[in-house]
Design a binder for these strands. Structure first.
Lengths: 154, 154
DNA sequence: TATTGTTATACTCTATAACTATA
DNA sequence: TATAGTTATAGAGTATAACAATA
């Protein structure tokens, strides 16, 4: 329900149309918007979903580890995790006096299955045009661009 | 200076790695961040730059036309344009009692040339790996994905 | 001394609503 | 009645700073 993009012009777009970054962003905004809409029935935002998936793949992971992996600041993890715990999707267990290991609860696991199913449909809807080979090649290409550049600082 | 991404994991990323949308977003965030940093010396944000370019390509265009083309709400155009006018980059001329035609001033034009030059360097830095052919193919592919989906409402 | 989790807070983006003046 | 521009404001998302408890 949030469609601010960079495109749609009847006006001359001119210079932008040669820019890969411009098209990349335009598509990314569209995809994120569709993904957010797809997850809305589960009362989850893309960030929530990614946190759940990360915990599912790494049971026992701590808040700050998830934060590092997903690029979310500790300060913002606290309320985010708090909500998921209050919804009974995540269970926490102190593992040392500071850290707490996180795991999915039963309902967290079943919600996670729904997230995966919704995500599959979403990807098929948006990228179903592409053959598996084309999709794989595209991911590899994008990853190549990423890794060549992301020599960014700590 | 704003690096929140979705990646970097030492933790298992697992499911995400098969998702085109995930990689698309990761790269898009990286590219936007680099673009914003590149424009910072000109005291322009990506949005400002896109507005200037749009006016340059469409002299006489009105605020709401630019807004429609770039997906910026009227309400948010007002302060944005106001700043650019106060900086002497844009000139406004009433064309009827409501609308005002916008044009770049002299300094707006020369700043626009700098934007283009910076943008070229930015694209070369991030996408220089790709041949022109690969880049063109990629843009076409992205545009194809966009247009097949963006049957979105007004 | 560094790290984990937390709170408080600020800034930017984006969105809605309501107003004015024109058409 | 609809449109262009404006103002005010609210809500996300993301940032910094500071603190307590622990390592």
């Amino acid at each position: 329900m949030n469609k601010s993009v960079l495109g749609v012009a009847e006006a001359e777009t001119a210079y932008f149309d040669e820019l890969l970054g411009y098209h990349l962003r335009r598509l990314s905004v569209l995809v994120m918007s569709d993904f957010a809409d797809s997850l809305a029935p589960l009362k989850l935002k893309p960030t929530d979903a990614s946190v759940l998936m990360m915990i599912e793949s790494n049971p026992g992971i701590t808040q700050s580890e998830v934060g590092k992996a997903l690029g979310i600041l500790r300060a913002n993890m606290a309320p985010l995790i708090g909500t998921l715990v209050r919804r009974g999707l995540i269970e926490r267990e102190r593992v040392d006096g500071r850290s707490q290991a996180m795991r999915l609860s039963g309902s967290g696991q079943s919600l996670c299955r729904q997230v995966k199913s919704i995500t599959r449909e979403h990807e098929k809807r948006l990228f179903g045009k592409l053959s598996d080979a084309a999709k794989t090649r595209l991911i590899a290409q994008i990853r190549g661009l990423w890794s060549s550049t992301s020599a960014s600082a700590p």
